[in-house]
Every structure is written in structure tokens, then in C-alpha cells.
Amino acid sequence: MKPYPLKCNPEFKDRVWGGRALEQFGLALPEGPIGEGWMIGDHPNGTTTVANGELAGLGLDRIRELYGKTLFGSKGFSEKNGRFPLLIKLLDCQDDLSVQVHPNDHYERLPQGELGKTEMWYILDAKPGAKIIYGLQEGVTREQLAAAIADNRIMDCLHEISVEAGDSFYIPAGTVHALGAGVLVAEIQQNSDSTYRLYDYDRLGLDGKPRELHIEDSLNVIAYEGSGATYMKTELSGPQQWLTLVQSPFFITEKGRVEGEWSLQTVPDSFVIHIVCEGTGAIRWADGELAVKAGECFLLPANLGDYALAGSMTVLRSYLP
């Protein structure tokens, strides 16, 4: 089989905080408040199937079994569970998300085969005044946080930041965080669905019942001395240049502006994932061309080799370190 850029059928997740904003990308959403589109995933809670080309109809898990390191690269597997190592999402936050934290790979209470969750956010759009929670106030200890939770004053311990389109946030495991209402986000993360909720505004879930909190696990995994979280504005100096947003042990993510044609290539040790943030264009390679537009995500096999991005668009590029 000749390699080509893979586009997947998203797995959509209804969430109490979700909405319909992902429809602006031409996505056909199921009914209900859709908070998450899992665009590229190989997880028991959501495995995407390929929508185009020779591999159409196959799940990413089956492709992994059939073609292994040829397509995903010599580094393209989790050492812990053998699955595809990343999960790519688009998030529509019409309401505040729960205040939460994620464990690292080594937390002893993780489900069997599950990874920890280090992630990053790129803000695609934000309504005026939109905010996120990003870490604890300086100096907050486990004991102080536990007392604040018991007294229902956890918000006093949290660090809040105003956001706008183009902001980028690195969220290592152990970082307390929450997206706020009015943001549309591209998320690159470890292939994990492990979330511990500290606080959920006393609201009910879609089933009409209070959503579960995970206070003890949260207190256990928070990095009270700092997790290494960083954030940045991402204005680009010009087209055809990569700006590094995140360089983590699990993925590297860069932002670039395409104007005209930009010649690039994959290497044998890692796949490349492109998220189109805005604009339109095409991916060209030796055997074809694929039209692309904002909101679409593509998995470029490690053995694709030379390719080009063409058109006028802003893209994120993620690959393994």
C-alpha cells in the first residue's frame, strides 16, 4: 500500500458543557450538546475510523495491527499499552468545564493499561471575556486545598487567566485546570481518558444526577510545587516558519502559516498530525492531492516522505520527540 494522509471520521461526545459550535467546520453532529470531537484516536472509549483512501472503514487500532511501525513510525506506540500514543480533539465549551487534574503515567490507581494525561490547548476562538483556570494560586499546599474544598471555597485557590484566539497552553499531568465558557479549542494529548474532578459548580450531568468528584485522587496527583505548565501568545513573524508551542516528553507541537506552497517531509520514526486552524488549502504528495479546510485533522504516515502544504491557512503540526 502506498502511504497517504489519513483523515478520520470523528467520534463525538455529548457533554453537559457542550454545544453545536463544531458544526461551523462542516461536521455532522449527532443530537445534543456536543462538547468533544475526537478527531484522531485509538482508545477503548473512542477509536476513529479512516474516512478516505484504501484504508477507509478501518479503525486506527486495526491499522496499527496491520501496518504497525511502517505507518506510525518506530516511536509511534505507547510503551505502556502498545496503542497509538496521542489523542486529538476539538472542544466546544459553551459552559465552564469542571475543575480537574490528570495523573501521570505512574499513578498507582490508574486503570489497567491506561496512560496518564499530559496535554496542550490551542485556542481557536474565544468570546470576549472568556477565561480559563490554569493552576493553583502560588504557595497553595495540599492541606490548604483540602480545607478549601471542604469549606466550598476552592475557587479562592485557583489561578484564572483571560484568553483569546491564538493563545497556547501546555498542561502537564498534575496541573489543575478548567476551560471556561465561550472557547473553542484544539487539544493534543496523551492517549488517555483519565480525569479527576475537583469541583463541578454543583451542577447536574446529562442524566440529571450530580457528576462524580474525585477529591482524594485529585489531591494525590496535583503537582503542588509546580508542574512545568507554560503558556504563550503565538503571533507568527511570517509564513513558512514553525513556532514551537510545546516540547514535551510525549509530543512536540508547532504552529505555522502557509502562504503558497511549503515543502515538508515526514521521517521514519514518527507520524505527523496536522490540524487546520483557519483557512483552506491542500496537502500534496507524490501520489496525490487532498483538499483541506479549517477544523480538519490529518494523520500523515511516517513513511509518506516528501509532501507539501499549499494554500492560505494556519496549521498546527504535532509529532513525537
Rank of each mutant, 00 (worst) to 15 (best):
C8E: 03
P10W: 00
T49K: 15
V50W: 01
L55A: 13
Y67K: 06
L71W: 01
F72Q: 07
G73L: 00
F77Q: 11
S78D: 09
I88C: 02
C93Q: 01
D95Y: 12
V99M: 08
D105I: 11
H106D: 14
R109D: 10
R109Q: 11
L115P: 02
M120H: 06
A130R: 03
G139R: 03
V140R: 05
L145Q: 04
L145K: 11
N152G: 11
R153M: 12
M155D: 12
L158N: 06
H159V: 02
F169K: 05
Y170R: 01
Y170W: 09
A173E: 05
A173M: 07
A181L: 10
A186P: 04
I188Y: 01
S192Y: 04
S192I: 06
S194P: 00
D200A: 02
P210W: 11
L213Y: 05
I215C: 05
E216A: 10
L219C: 06
A223Y: 08
A229S: 13
Y231E: 15
T234W: 03
S237K: 15
G238E: 10
P239Q: 13
Q240W: 15
S248L: 12
K255I: 15
G256F: 10
W262D: 06
W262Q: 08
L264D: 12
V267I: 13
P268W: 02
S270H: 13
F271I: 10
G279A: 05
A282M: 11
A286F: 05
A291M: 11
K293Y: 13
F298A: 02
L299N: 03
N303K: 06
T314G: 08
L316Q: 09
S318M: 07
